[in-house]
Every structure is written in C-alpha cells, then in structure tokens.
Design a protein around this nucleic acid. Structure first.
Lengths: 200, 200
DNA sequence: ACAAATACTATACATTTGTATAGTATATAT
DNA sequence: ATATATACTATACAAATGTATAGTATTTGT
C-alpha cells in the first residue's frame, strides 16, 4: 500500500532513529521531531504505517515499534561481482556476474556499486593482486590520484588515475609497467575503487 | 573487560529481545525475565554492561539501550577489530577493540574470529599493507606456507609460516626483510589469515 | 582477614508514555 | 455531492518506566 508524504516522512524518521540510536522513538518524540503539538498527530501516522504493513507495533508498549522488513536489508548491500567487463554490453550483464557478495554499509558506505575481480598484477605495488575483488562506486567524479576502474579498448582495468590538460593518464603500480596516456574520449571511467576484499 | 555469569545472561537476554522484537527491553522486563523482585537488580547488571562497553545507554530514556556492537544473524557475523595485541592481556580485551565490522558468512565462512589492523609493510609483497584489516580464524592448525598472525616477543605480527624440525620460521614478504627463526615455545600462533579488507 | 565488588530485596517518586475523547479543516475518491 | 481518509490541536489519565535510597548476603581478590 502506498504512503502519503507525511507518512513517508514519519517512516524515514523512525528508520533513521533506529539506525542511529539503536532503539525506536516514542510517539511524542516523533511529534516533537515534526513540530506537532499533539501526540495524536504522530500516533495517527504511526497507526497508518502499522496498518499498511510498514511497521510492527507491540501495543501499549513504550517504543514498541519495529520494522516489518528487517533492518539487515538496510544495513547491508548485495553487490554483483563481475569477472570481465567488455565495452558494448552493459557492465552488469547477467552473463558477466560471477557471484554476489554481501557487504555491510557500515564498512563500505554505498548506495549502489559492484565488485570487479582483478586480473593481472599491474597494481601489485598498491597491494591489489590477481583474484582480489575491488569494490567500485560508480558515478562519482574521481579526483587526481584515485584508483579507478576504467574502460579502454574494450577492456576494463584497474589503475591509478591522473588527468593532465585533457589527457587521461592511467598509471599502473608495478615496477615494470609505465603509465599510459589516452585522449579523454577514448577512456570511460566506470567508477572509483573504494574497497578491496581478498579471500585466502 | 570480562563479564560475570549473571551479566552475560542479561546481555544475552537483551540481545535476543532486540533480535526478536526489534526494540530493547525495559529494566523491569529484564528483571521479570530473571525473576528479580526489584528493578534495581536488573539495572545494576545493565549498569555493568554499559560500564564494560557492551551496551550503550541513553539515560533516563525508556528502552534506551543499544548494542555497542552490530547484531550478528545467521547470514552475517560481527567481528571485533583489534589494533594492537600484547601478550598477557587477552586478545579481545575491550580496550583493544577499535571497531566492529560485519562480514557475511557467505564471504568468509567463519564461526568465530577477529580482525586485526595491520601495522607496517612487512607483508607488502603479499599485497597486505599498513591499515588493512586481516580476518583471522583462530584455533585451526595452519599448514606450511599459510599467512598467520603470530605472537612473538609480546607483539602480534602477520607473517608467512613455515616449520622446519621444531623451528618456527616467520617469513616477511618484503624485499628488505629476512625470515626470522624461533623456538616453537617462543611463538604462539593466534590464527590463520583467511581474508583481507581494505578501505580506500 | 578484610575490603571491594557482586547479587540481590523492598519501597518510593517524578516523568514518560500509549492511548483516549472531543474537536476543526482539508484533501481525495466514488 | 458526499462520504471517507488525511492531518492536525487540545487536554486527560492510568500505567509504565528510569532512577534513587536503604538495606542484606555472598563472592572475589589481595
């Protein structure tokens, strides 16, 4: 069932309260948060949220609210891990997805993203080895020196990014390899590497 | 800090209450659960749990309890991350715990374990850098060549383990460092490194 | 042996809290 | 158009609640 604007605001407040403080708010705390001068104003919104299945309530119990959907869904995120990325086909094409990993938002504060299995040892001096999974946050403007996932010549690679007057420089971290320079149009930055996971 | 039996029982009850109902119990609900005839009996146990760092409390607030550590469930595990490990004091002494991280059992199939923040770059050629968190599984017999956390000379270090007729060899993975040899009695293997997490 | 911490009982009190009754005003759907 | 749901104010009340004071008995550490 759909929520009204006011109901959605109240639900968001309750969610945030539980996430931040670890326990639900009282009816009056909800009222205070929205400037309501009567506790009933808040209670009616909560009643609606319970009726519509968004919240559970133990009646007569102080702070007796809980989420109908477990918070674990909110506190952790399931990310697809791709092995190879080719230009043309979408990054997260199902045939590319090797597995899904669950990472806690606490550890990697993402809204969306994906994992990429590292191929080759071009970033070995940055402690990124073959087989590692790098956690990639797409759609953020990377700054000078960030480690990124870039799509060049039909292949995705992990490199350190520098930009010099319109030229994109992808720098490996390997003693035998040299930085590569590209015209901005020839490189697509898929995202910034924000984490790494390795299994031994 | 260690918990007494009664304190542990109370903590377990509070944990279960939050897990099952979604909100913490009141002081009196704890008292009732254990048959205490005075709310103070429960309060004193809760006071101890707050003092010892297992719970957080908003004072004067009904059900104002929350867990200092994130909740573990069937699919994820909450691991303490320790910064420094010294001989003598127990590994997981509360004053050593920097944070808790939640890892999915899917990713690291553990029943128990801990994280250790890596100091120094003695394992840089194995892709383990300063600041990384290694996931340690204690109590398993490590095999030749495994990366382990070992306690030597009052300090915990991450090294690759070899054993040669009674001698324990801890091998750094760093061009400038040489393997160290110890009598078996002088080294305690705290656990095997089964994973690594890095945040950029 | 002795001090400190632990583990409880009994009772009390000011607040906090969920809920209720009685309204007003506006938006939404049939 | 008209009933229904939404969105609020004002006030009230019994029960729940965190905390406090004053104790007793037992365990633990030194």
């Amino acid at each position: 069932m759909k929520l009204t604007k006011a109901q959605k605001r109240v639900l968001d407040f309750i969610l945030q309260h539980i996430r931040e403080r670890g326990y639900p708010p009282t009816v009056r705390e909800v009222a205070r948060a929205f400037g309501y001068r009567s506790p009933l104003s808040a209670k009616q919104h909560i009643d609606a949220l319970v009726r519509k299945g968004y919240l559970r309530r133990a009646s007569g119990v102080s702070r007796g609210l809980s989420l109908a959907m477990p918070l674990s869904n909110a506190s952790s995120l399931s990310l697809p891990v791709v092995g190879t990325i080719r230009a043309g086909s979408p990054i997260l094409a199902t045939e590319n997805i090797e597995e899904y990993i669950t990472v806690s938002r606490e550890l990697f504060p993402l809204e969306e993203g994906f994992g990429l299995r590292v191929v080759g040892d071009s970033m070995k001096d940055a402690g990124i080895l073959e087989g590692d999974i790098v956690i990639v946050r797409p759609g953020v403007e990377p700054t000078q020196g960030d480690i990124v996932v870039a799509l060049v010549e039909d292949e995705a690679t992990v490199k350190r990014l520098f930009i010099e007057d319109g030229t994109v420089i992808l720098k490996p971290e390997h003693p035998d390899m040299r930085p590569m320079r590209f015209k901005a149009a020839d490189v697509k930055i898929l995202g910034k590497v924000v984490g790494l996971i390795r299994r031994f």
